[in-house]
Design a protein around this nucleic acid. Sequence first.
DNA 1: CCGATTGCTGCAAAGGTTTGCAGCGAAATA
DNA 2: TATTTCGCTGCAAACCTTTGCAGCAATCGG
Lengths: 375, 375
Amino acid sequence: MPATIRDVARASGVHISTVSRTFSAPHLVNPETRGRVLACAEELGYRPNRAARALITGRTHNVGLIIADIANPFFPPLIKAAESQARQRDYHVFVADTNEDPIAEEELVHALAKQVDGVLLCSPRMSNSMIEQLSREVPLVVINRQVAGLPCVTMDVGQGARSAIEHLLGLGHRRIALLSGPRGSWTSREIRRAAGVAARAGGAEFTVLGPNQPTETGGMALAEQVRRGEATAVLAYNDLMAIGLIEGLDAVGLRVPQDVSVVGIDDIALSRLTRPKLTTVATPNAAAGRTAVDMLLQHDTVAARGSRGGRGVTSDDRRTTAQVMLQTELVIRDSTAAAPADGRNRLDAELVTPGPHRLAGPGRPTAATGGVVAS
Amino acid sequence: MPATIRDVARASGVHISTVSRTFSAPHLVNPETRGRVLACAEELGYRPNRAARALITGRTHNVGLIIADIANPFFPPLIKAAESQARQRDYHVFVADTNEDPIAEEELVHALAKQVDGVLLCSPRMSNSMIEQLSREVPLVVINRQVAGLPCVTMDVGQGARSAIEHLLGLGHRRIALLSGPRGSWTSREIRRAAGVAARAGGAEFTVLGPNQPTETGGMALAEQVRRGEATAVLAYNDLMAIGLIEGLDAVGLRVPQDVSVVGIDDIALSRLTRPKLTTVATPNAAAGRTAVDMLLQHDTVAARGSRGGRGVTSDDRRTTAQVMLQTELVIRDSTAAAPADGRNRLDAELVTPGPHRLAGPGRPTAATGGVVAS
DNA sequence: CCGATTGCTGCAAAGGTTTGCAGCGAAATA
DNA sequence: TATTTCGCTGCAAACCTTTGCAGCAATCGG
């Protein structure tokens, strides 16, 4: 029923190859002919069959986007951005959810490999070696993780964690706990490293709790441990955990920020809506999505695989595997305050009244253009 | 580079058609041969080229899922469920986001039409006639809207709204406002209708505010109007708006639930985390996603389009276009309380102390099996 | 006026798979 | 034993598009 290239050719009295060229290389066809073809195509509602095109060009004009958990509000802005960026370049996006399962990740890449021109691997939980292996099967761009030799886009959570810790130190906190993220998370390791260094440099005690599920539940479950540890400030792997923790602390009788200060990471929309509003490290996830798509689709793009005999494998395999790191920014709201003045935790007494203002920068870090770290 | 069916055939010493049948009709091939072929295929890492298969079968084994706004936490559970259900049946899902734009919706359906076997149209904002027109281009299942003649899966928000209003009436509220949703939303119309009937039946004043953007911001912006209208209770189109409204009311000096009771719809995860915890109507969105996929993929499924000459159009075009409606359930938490006792709003004095308990049913309405409304 | 160039179009192969049909040997039936 | 049946496999067409190459007419240079 749907019109094929042949129908258009017949209707406009030209050969199918002319119709094809009308779309893929308009400058090669006589303007008059072109007009006629276009008119007929419009009339018949012709749309090229992508499967047939993919078969011969080796390009599907699809990209895969593999996400740890769509329900985590961290991801949707990234997905949206990636999708709209791809659409602008006439690509479509397959979104797949792994439920934080490394096995599912691997299977998904395999399943998608033949069907897409490249895969965006977002917050992968699998091993580096597995990622490298998969990258031989299909072009990959990794988001939220650095893998040597592969194009990556990350956010500078190390810097973010450092800012957060320094903010807490400035408020007089000297017993700081970190709620780490899921096993296998590069981000979690970065945060841990940077926060640890900063905390110790500031002369604070630093405890790590985890690994944990990066959800409200995961955060809530840690309230009791935090209470027992007598930390006066907590940095959480993400906002969801921070919010869950606040809830949990409330249940065990600790108030935020009076008794305990809590800092999240991500600045999801939700963090502005809970009470208290969450102090958090804003990450430019929309920008990350856009950037990742651009990196995957650079050079008009991703070398066609397995195309027409002879051609194809020729040149240009050495894609510039850039690694981009985007800036983060601490946003101070109401979940952090001066350390409680009840004794040993209170080494110096900077009494800062925290208000809902920002540490730096005017607006949301949407346009966060990252610095290229490696080439 | 990637192994084709031909490579497998060569390696196992059979014709390609035998390899093909090994996968698509195993019972037709000798177990011994089959084993050999399977082994070789495994060895070579062979995976059938879906584009080539699509070309001949007319089935892409992909489905499209068009969503108004991924960032709205209402949708991710639905997306996840749809995706995993599809994956179980060896289908993949294209997720696309329209940003609540009817034009984008239409374009997306067109763009996807040739590339998928069917489209799940979730919370469409476009007109019914447009939907009908598009359904002639590609099989459609509509979610969150009833369109005559098309398979639909909806949630009984009418019943939900009624329960909510009755709950509020029971608490003594007699001035009730409704924050309606976006223009073009079937759900919003249903809620409005049902809530209006219930409110008037209970002798309450009923005002409608809207249409509005279905976001926190949209809800927050209405706080002032709610204050001026002197409503003591508000039903919002969704939880996001309800939460935004609570925030906004706080800013204009009204406390929830002491001064104003607020009820949301959807029961997103967030509604359990804000303070006060939100009283809301739980909708079974995961079930909706699963059901919609099943409906689209029923009959092994969606009649192949434009297949091999002659065949194809033959039979079975009269798919049973069922319309399924899933149950909803009122979940009472902390954002609703007895109407303030300061006079005219307080017609009868049922003093109910609302606690965080449920009105009915034991657990989350996950398995909400809906009744078939039409056939 | 002849040869080369240019601009446009047609031809046909190729891409990887599915599937109706035919063929083949062996077993079952007559 | 002759014939049908059955189980399995091979053959080849078809799906729709892209693209290198060839051909053709008209224009240009000399």
